[in-house]
Design a protein around this nucleic acid. Structure first.
Lengths: 160, 160
DNA sequence: TATGAAAGACATCATGT
DNA sequence: ACATGATGTCTTTCATA
């Protein structure tokens, strides 16, 4: 379906590290003419291999305390209620700026990545906004102490 | 510590959406002169508010099955062993291309975001690579069915 | 698809309001 | 903070292989 050669991959790797490098700089690093690099990048964009260009924000704007929160809803008698309830929770959380990411997990679960200025605020948020939700079976808070791979994820997600 | 005004925030929001817009395009959208936009962006970069520029890869290169895995180690008699064991697990996972992110959670926990081509492969990975680790107290697999906020996270993290 | 050359668009910087 | 203009660099296009 997608066929990338070594040159494509090399370009993608470079752009992932620094998407502001000029075509001539990339061309120089890869020992290819500028027009070739330009052509490849254009194709990668057209095919949607490169979805978009973005910025990663620095530490200053990032929350200092992070946690993954797993929310599991009580299974109700009426199946259809669960579905709507889960969607409601997800929509609600998605609107909050300190909720960096929201995902569904199975039929009855929601995973959220929460960011706050301090551990206290984070705990308070979990207590006052999540644990108060009705008919939950389980709320698991997994604090994030430090990120070893996929750092930059916070600067990528954080709202401004 | 960091003081951003509305213009700074507007610029950051625009760049987050499309970091390849030219300064003149941004200037036009915000009804400001190009020189001002240029100056602001330069400052934002110098201050590290903008950490870096990058690309988000499209669906084609993204894993189809995702899961958050929480790994908790058994608390040993010797405290120092736990520390080194956790670091070892994190380093090991970080090297694998299908492990998109690795974070530490408290003294005895590791959180990993796993991506695979299929649900079966993902299960196999958990069984054969994670559950075989010795002296674990708990392994919790939270499959991700679908992402409602922070989509793009996968295209941001995925290796090429 | 790859390349080289040429044209146009752009970022950058200095200077002044 | 904004305006203007000068400069060099980069992107983009196109003709050709």
């Amino acid at each position: 379906m997608v066929q990338l050669d070594d040159l494509d991959r090399a370009i993608l790797r470079i752009l992932k590290e620094d998407a502001r490098l000029t075509i001539s700089e990339i061309a120089e690093r890869l020992n290819r003419p500028e027009s070739t690099i330009h052509f490849r990048i254009k194709k990668l964009q057209e095919k949607g291999i490169i979805d978009r260009y973005t910025i990663v924000l620095g530490k200053d704007l990032q929350p200092k305390a992070l946690a993954v929160v797993y929310i599991q809803a009580e299974t109700p008698i009426i199946e259809d209620f669960l579905e709507r309830y889960i969607l409601h929770i997800m929509k609600t959380l998605s609107l909050l700026p300190n909720v960096l990411a929201v995902a569904r997990s199975g039929r009855d679960g929601v995973i959220a990545l929460i960011g706050e200025e301090s551990q206290e605020k984070l705990n308070r948020f979990v207590d006052e906004t999540i644990k108060v939700l009705p008919t939950l079976k389980r709320v698991e808070v997994l604090p994030i102490t430090d990120i070893t791979k996929g750092n930059g994820i916070v600067g990528f997600l954080v709202d401004v």
